[in-house]
Simulated assay, not measured.
Amino acid sequence: MPPVVGYVGTDVPVELLTAAGVTPLRLTGDPARVGGAGEEYLGRGVDPVAVSILNRLLSHDFPVDRVLVSHDCEASLRLFYALRELRRLEPSAGLPEPYLVDVLHLPHRTTTAYNRVRLRELRERLGAWYGPVTDGAVADAVALHDERRRLLAELRPRLTGVEAFAMAAGGPVPPATVHGGAVSPATVHGGRRVFLTGSSHDTPHVYVALEDAGYLVVGEDHSPVLPPGGSTVDDLAERYQYNGPAASWSPIAARAAHTAAAARACGAELVIAYARRNDGGPAWDFPAQRAALAAVGIPAVLVKNQEYGSIAVPVGSAA
C-alpha cells in the first residue's frame, strides 16, 4: 500500500503528492469534536474547523505521518504553527510532521516566481521522503487530477448537493467510480435550487440540513477553481496562484462577480451566504454579492454566526 499524506487547505497541490506515489488524504474536522485541547492550543477565536482537526490529530484519527498545511487562511496557518510547536515541545504526543505550503495569490510576476520556488522545494522534500519525483510523473498526475475534476463538473448537474459533496470530499472523482456504475442516470431532484457561498465546508452536515429542509444545493463557490494550464511544477505554481477567487484573498468585487455568474450558470433560485462562528469574511463579501445577484434576478440571504456543522435554515424560502 502506498503511504498516506494528509493535507489541509485549498492551496496544497495534490498533483505533486500523486506524482510522489503517495495517497493524498484531506483532513477534516468533526462538528462534535470542538473545544477541548484543540481550542486550548489554538485559542477560542480560531475557526472551529481547525480546532476540530487538531483534536482529531491529537487522537490519532488519521493514518498519516506527515501533513501538508497550506497558507490559504489564518486558521490553517495557526494550525501549522501549533503542530510544529507541539512536535517540538511534546514529542510524546506522536503528532505527524507538518510542512507549510505557502502559495501566494497576488497577480504579479514576483508572486509567480515566489510560488515556483515554494513548489520546487515541496517537490524536493517529497523526493527526499519518498523517492525522486520525475517530470513524467508530475505530468501524468496533473492529467489524472484534471480529468477527475472534469468528470465531477460533468456529473454535477445530475447530483444533489449531498451527493456531489460526497464525491468531492476526499479529492477529485475517481474515474473508476464513474464508469463502474456508482452514478445513476440523470435524476430529477425536487426542492428550491440554491447556491451556497460563504464559509467553506469539510463535512456534509450543512448540505444535509438544507436538503432535508426542502432545498436542493445545485452549486457552491468554496472549491478552488484551477485555471487551465501546463503540466510542469512551474505551471502548477501559477495555476494554484490563480485558483480563485477565494474569500480569504480576492477583492470583494471579484468574489461578487464570480458568485453571481456561478449561481446563474447552475440555475439557482436563491443564494445562501453561510458564515460560521469566527469567520467574519462572508459578512464583508455579502453586500456586494447581494447587489451582483440582484442584477441577475437572484435573491440572497446571509445566515451568520453559525456553529460548525449547523445552520439556521431560512424559513419560508424552500417552497
Rank of each mutant, 00 (worst) to 15 (best):
A256K: 06
V233D: 05
A19V: 02
G297P: 12
D30F: 01
H205D: 15
I252T: 15
E121N: 01
S59L: 09
S200V: 09
S231V: 10
L79M: 06
P31Y: 09
P174F: 10
V208A: 12
H71N: 15
P174C: 09
Y41G: 00
E85G: 10
E147S: 15
D234H: 04
T259E: 08
E15R: 01
P3Q: 06
V217K: 03
H179W: 15
E97A: 15
V22Y: 01
P24W: 02
G136E: 15
H105V: 04
G214K: 00
G244V: 07
N278K: 00
L236V: 09
P98T: 13
L151T: 11
V188Q: 13
A247C: 08
V271L: 12
G45M: 05
A141M: 10
P96I: 12
L126Q: 02
T18C: 01
L144Q: 14
Y242I: 01
G131C: 09
L17H: 00
E154R: 05
R150A: 15
V225Y: 05
V117N: 02
A254G: 08
A273P: 09
A139K: 08
M167L: 15
V188T: 10
V162H: 05
G309Q: 08
L293E: 14
G29M: 13
T203S: 15
A141C: 10
V46I: 12
V49G: 06
A176D: 09
P224S: 02
A318D: 00
G280R: 12
A143G: 13
S184Y: 10
L57R: 11
F62M: 11
C266S: 00
G161N: 07
V225S: 08
V138R: 10
Y215E: 11
S184A: 14
S310H: 09
P287A: 12
